[in-house]
Nucleic acid binder design. Sequence first.
DNA 1: CTGAAAGCGCTTACAG
DNA 2: CTGAAAGCGCTTACAG
Lengths: 347, 347
Amino acid sequence: MQKEMAGRAKKKIRSLQDLADAAGVSRATASRALNDNPVISLKTRKRLQSLARKHGYSINQKARDFRLQRTSVISVVFMLDIRSEQHMSDPFFLDMLGGIADALAEHDYDLLLAHAPITDVLDLKESRVMQQSDGTIFIGQGEQHEQLKELAAGDNHMVVWGYPVADKNYVVIGGDNKGGCYKATKHLLELGRRKVAFFGNTNNPENAARYAGYLQALDEYGIAANPMIEVDVPFEMHRAREVIVTMLESGVELDAVVCISDVMALAAISTFQDVGLDVPNDIAVVGYDDISLAAYSSPPLTTVRQTIRHAGRVLVESVLGLIRGEHVPDTMLTSELIVRKSSGENG
Amino acid sequence: MQKEMAGRAKKKIRSLQDLADAAGVSRATASRALNDNPVISLKTRKRLQSLARKHGYSINQKARDFRLQRTSVISVVFMLDIRSEQHMSDPFFLDMLGGIADALAEHDYDLLLAHAPITDVLDLKESRVMQQSDGTIFIGQGEQHEQLKELAAGDNHMVVWGYPVADKNYVVIGGDNKGGCYKATKHLLELGRRKVAFFGNTNNPENAARYAGYLQALDEYGIAANPMIEVDVPFEMHRAREVIVTMLESGVELDAVVCISDVMALAAISTFQDVGLDVPNDIAVVGYDDISLAAYSSPPLTTVRQTIRHAGRVLVESVLGLIRGEHVPDTMLTSELIVRKSSGENG
DNA sequence: CTGAAAGCGCTTACAG
DNA sequence: CTGAAAGCGCTTACAG
């Protein structure tokens, strides 16, 4: 008897079968008990659960997922646009990723990160990213709207951070890009600036919407857009600097800049200061995103706040909704202008 | 006959069995063929492989992993130290994560991100993080060296980004923190600064090593450490600002600062400028990490470069080495001083 | 060179 | 309320 108990105590419980043996029930009962299936008597459930706890056993989720034909994995694809050269180290991405990771963890999903530059999203169709995950979150549309449409035509559970495009067939979550840039531009105009440049490209829907907001504000003030100061500034900072310097040397005049991201705004400020221009006195600068560093630049950055972490949560709730078979609407999050010193006044 | 072919063509191939049926071989042969097992005739292998390609079938990795009793997942734990309040959005983390993600992808491993603040690492022992992954990468030791030791005492495959501690039993990859901060401090001393402060806490091994490097440089110049200007500055920027302001108001004199991270250095510069101090003329500032924004602050930041992305690769290679059962040595990556304008001179 | 059979750790419809 | 049995999609030792 002693011997038997000793033997039993020694045996490491590594599977449901082990646990069932130790408790003297079947594997089926053990499974139901640990899943708190009410068809099992409360007493048996409690007994099995505490036995499991005592032995440090918990259900093998991978086996469970396999049996249930699911993965409990959501993949996240950063659509780093090669042409725009936006860099992964933009803090915007990490904040977004953090929001997504937190929300997924709460729902017991794992996060599969696919961030290598994607030349053609369709390649993902046969990759683990889409095949071995229950859903996919795309961060940005890049210039691949058509490919995203084709992916969405499959039965994939996918949501996209971006801006709605006319004929889209996928769920879009995004900020109010047009309204955000409208507010930013209007703010500069209200402060008396009249030669307001736009720094950034417009080759994806989000950026195009921001540009539209910029134009709308100019229009309200009866200012014609000046192509000379709408610059396709690359996200990559070394190149951004070159482009900006070239533009300044061309002799165009400007007294304010609306930038497509905070990182670009920081690069612009640094470049202006290098050539002896004062921000905001000579040139006012407004960014976009409100990354945490924005408040600590010199001067502190006026910017359009995107509630990035919250956006991450919305993306997660949306993709999980799709997985549950629900109808999921698009979401547009509001954008708020945060006024600091880089635009002059206030701050 | 026609009918049969039509039927066959229509049937969607979703599993090895489907493929085997379509090819007229056994499931076992199909498995070996797709894995390019040379025991199968080359002809059969090629035939099966092209058939699979034609039907867009690829092996279900999750089922394969399950059968092979592995997960193909490496988990990454960011040891966000609650006391030091270093924020996840520090670009340092994203660069590191990017390096890790790239390297893992090359080896066909997935990345499970666990970044919620960990109060007690031992909680991970029973979580998916360690149970359902083949290995774990910890970013930072925080103040949990003892707990990491206990985890390592299990048979876990784990590597830690940090700094070697005397009685450690886990593999450590890290920068030359002591040497890096030594160089940074010496650089300031060589430029004639004599009242050099240290901004940061020393409550984890990495930071303690940096502090030691700072002291060593001071010592070589015969300067005694002044406790008044070794400030436990929190990583969180709002609080950092408060602490710095309080210190300045206390009337201590300083003409240079060595900061424990670039983000902290940027916060410090911003704070100094706010109170009317000029950087670098009144106070020289040196950071640590060389995040990509460091070159674009105002003034551009002198800092100690950590080859962050490369470090990510080394972490991955090391943990995969452990999984393969190899002996994996510690690695110390060199640290290089990048001189820009925030320290005065050059840049 | 190929196949039949066992089994990875679970869940659940079915039967009692 | 509980159990025996089938099966999720694979791989591999064993036998031929």
